[in-house]
């Protein structure tokens, strides 16, 4: 671990301004991912700005009939919130499918969105990784990549985004509220937040230097049957091989986002449009440009089958 300095920010704008002053700074909230990465010298911030005291830890109704979730709301609290459980079941289910009870007690809403990939080569500093060391290459291509992306990847990176929560947020059309170092605020749709790897897999979101997430907003509830199905090698405490977040309306229309298959939660309008025609049609659109490896090609039929199972449950 590289030595670092530490400060507690007094307000979101102050935190963002402090980050702008120190280019090597990072925000720390729950720390469930960042601290591990610092111990392994994968993340090497020279300065930490602790945002835990910013009181961004409430869940409030919005004027539009949705919910505004403070960036610091812990995963456990979000999953247990009565309104979330009633109106956004897919989110509660996704949260509870992730990590462990202890981790969910610490992990925050914004931090969850910004967690980094679990690619084993990203985690081994002896190995080439374009995310960790831009330009060094991608060891996962041609290596052990059973967990990796099957769609939306690039020649530079085939990592996946590991979050469950983000997949549910994506299917719910959540928005991300931020504050920039100069105090300006903006709203980013969850669809835009995460980038595909392209040539710069080290740049994972559209957030600017020092920009701080203050809240995640959910639009008015859309009803329907809300499902989250996570497929993994063991029953708990494992990252998804494939996960399916789906909202299915009584008329058969709906939306679906997949986890475990891409560098970001994977959802396409064209796929949503196929929902009434069933899993095969939806998967056909979602994976139209899929380029799986020898080891992870199973994710394509797996995702389709998991979606079929979800749709059957939703109908049942």
């Amino acid at each position: 671990m590289k030595p670092f300095t530490y400060e507690r920010a007094g307000s979101p704008a102050e935190a963002a301004a402090a980050a702008a002053r120190r280019p090597e700074a990072k925000f720390i909230a729950g720390g469930t991912n960042l601290l591990d990465l610092m111990k392994l010298q994968i993340e090497t911030p020279a300065h930490l700005i602790d945002v835990n005291g910013l009181k961004l830890d409430t869940i409030e109704p919005t004027q539009e009939g949705g919910l505004r979730i403070g960036a610091l709301v812990r995963n456990t609290d979000l999953a247990a919130d009565e309104r979330v459980r009633r109106d956004y079941g897919v989110l509660s289910r996704a949260l509870l499918a992730g990590a462990s009870g202890q981790l969910r007690n610490r992990a925050t809403t914004a931090g969850n969105l910004l967690q980094r990939t679990r690619c084993p080569y990203f985690y081994d500093t002896n190995m080439a990784c374009n995310k960790r060391r831009p330009g060094s290459g991608c060891s996962a291509i041609g290596g052990i990549n059973r967990q990796h992306a099957v769609v939306g990847a690039s020649e530079a990176c085939i990592a996946t985004h590991p979050s469950d929560m983000a997949v549910a947020m994506r299917v719910l059309d959540a928005s991300i509220e931020t504050v920039k170092p100069q105090g300006a605020t903006r709203t980013i749709s969850i669809a835009e937040l995460h980038r595909l790897p392209g040539d710069t897999p080290n740049v994972e979101t559209v957030l600017e230097a020092g920009e701080l997430i203050t809240a995640v907003t959910l639009p008015r509830p859309v009803g329907g049957s809300q499902q989250y199905r996570k497929v993994r090698d063991r029953a708990s405490y494992a990252f998804a091989l494939v996960s399916v977040a789906a909202i299915v309306q009584p008329d058969g229309s709906g939306r679906v986002a997949l986890g475990g298959v891409a560098h970001k939660p994977w959802r396409l309008d064209a796929a949503d449009a196929e929902m009434p025609r069933g899993a095969k049609a939806v998967a056909g659109k979602l994976f139209a440009d899929a380029k799986p490896t020898e080891h992870n090609a199973f994710k394509l039929p797996l995702a389709e089958r998991a979606l079929a199972s979800v749709l059957a449950d939703a109908r049942g």
Partner: peptide
């Protein structure tokens, strides 16, 4: 233990990547 035959090592060298049963299993 997943072998990267190019580099000659076990790639999944921590308890997140080398899965053993948890209580739920």
């Amino acid at each position: 233990l997943a072998i990267d035959a190019r580099h000659g090592f076990f790639v999944n060298h921590d308890l997140a990547h080398y899965e053993v049963p948890v209580h739920a299993d």
